[in-house]
Amino acid sequence: MNIFRLTGDLSHLAAIIILLLKIWKTRSCAGISGKSQVLFALVFTTRYLDLLTSFISLYNTTMKIIYIGCAYATVYLIYMKFKATYDGNHDTFRVEFLVVPVGGLAFLVNHDFSPLEILWTFSIYLESVAILPQLFMISKTGEAETITTHYLFFLGLYRALYLINWIWRFYFEGFFDMIAIVAGVVQTILYCDFFYLYVTKGESGSNKINPA
């Protein structure tokens, strides 16, 4: 464990908690893409099946359970509890265009052709594009609530910190996982446009960002 990975995990946890609290406190999921949240729940489910097969550390197990719990709680709030506030007309990204190619790629490019490893690879590839429905929805509505932009900032920051963690681990441990690194680079690049808006609009204090 290094400071970049720890900060990255905490940033990821912060994003997940920010979103869950935002929906819970405002009792509304307006502006939130339910499709992205379903994809994230799928990412955690397929990646953390090893909870059943191997124990790495208390930290690892605890965080995985928290991530899975929060992901499903968020999906529940969006599609059940606060269903009336779900903005389905703007959450129209065709997720099958993400899941099918990612599923195929996981079969073609992986470390080991075993079920757990294929699912892990699927989850890594899926996570890199899972935010697209949310970014697409924001571009369609033309605005995002401030709290949603903080959620996206921490979510984008987490994988950027992981990139530094992988540089650190390659240099100090000789460890590197090409699949995770390539997917992580793609994932972080997808946030660049948003990061730019977040920083520039954030300074001007406007309470909404308007992606081009």
């Binding site: 990646r47 191997s54 790495i56 690892n60 965080m63 991530y67 470390h111 995770a180």
Partner: peptide, 10 residues
């Protein structure tokens, strides 16, 4: 091979 290749990251 999979056992050797443990994914220790979240």
């Amino acid at each position: 091979e999979y056992d050797i290749y443990k994914h220790d990251e979240l």
